[in-house]
Simulated assay, not measured.
Amino acid sequence: MMQAGAVLLLCAALLLIAGRNCDICPAVREDVYLFVRGTPEEYIAKVKEYNTNSAIVANARRLKDRVDEKLTEEDKQNAFSVLVGQAVSLC
């Protein structure tokens, strides 16, 4: 299950790589970092910058809570490292 989550994050980020410059947009990198490694408050604040729909914010909070509950610190670091490393290796 944890590998599936890491792959999902990777695929989502790869879709957002702009211009084949082999770097993830800094805003996307920050969003993914906050989702995987940030605090719930930091992540929800970032979500609210883009969308104030209460249902979306509630779902984002549930997803973040689940990530924090299920993934170990090592899993979180690996997911972020794979995301960043994979984007660079596409060049």
Rank of each mutant, 00 (worst) to 15 (best):
M1V: 08
M2Y: 03
Q3A: 13
Q3I: 05
Q3T: 12
G5F: 12
G5S: 07
G5M: 10
A6N: 08
L9K: 04
L9G: 09
L9C: 07
L9R: 04
L10W: 03
L10S: 08
C11N: 12
A12I: 07
A13E: 09
A13L: 05
L14Q: 15
L15V: 12
L16N: 12
A18S: 13
A18G: 11
A18K: 13
A18Y: 12
G19A: 13
G19D: 15
G19M: 09
R20N: 15
R20Q: 13
N21T: 15
C22D: 13
D23E: 14
D23H: 10
D23I: 09
I24T: 09
I24K: 08
C25Y: 10
C25H: 10
C25F: 02
C25G: 07
P26V: 05
A27M: 10
A27S: 08
A27Q: 11
V28R: 08
V28D: 13
R29C: 06
E30R: 13
E30N: 10
D31S: 08
D31L: 05
V32Y: 06
V32F: 09
Y33M: 01
Y33H: 12
L34Y: 13
L34G: 08
F35G: 05
V36S: 10
R37M: 11
R37N: 14
G38K: 04
T39K: 07
T39I: 04
P40W: 03
P40C: 10
E42K: 06
E42M: 12
E42S: 12
Y43T: 01
I44Y: 03
A45D: 09
K46F: 04
K48G: 01
K48T: 05
E49K: 05
Y50G: 14
N51L: 00
T52S: 03
T52E: 04
N53R: 05
A55W: 00
A55E: 11
V57N: 00
A58Q: 12
A58Y: 02
A60W: 03
A60N: 04
R61S: 05
R62T: 08
K64R: 09
K64Y: 03
K64S: 11
D65H: 01
R66H: 02
V67T: 04
L71I: 00
L71E: 02
T72M: 06
T72W: 07
D75F: 01
K76L: 02
K76I: 03
Q77R: 06
A79P: 01
A79F: 06
F80E: 01
F80S: 01
S81K: 00
V82Y: 07
L83M: 14
L83A: 02
G85S: 02
Q86S: 13
Q86K: 02
A87C: 07
A87M: 00
A87S: 11
S89G: 10
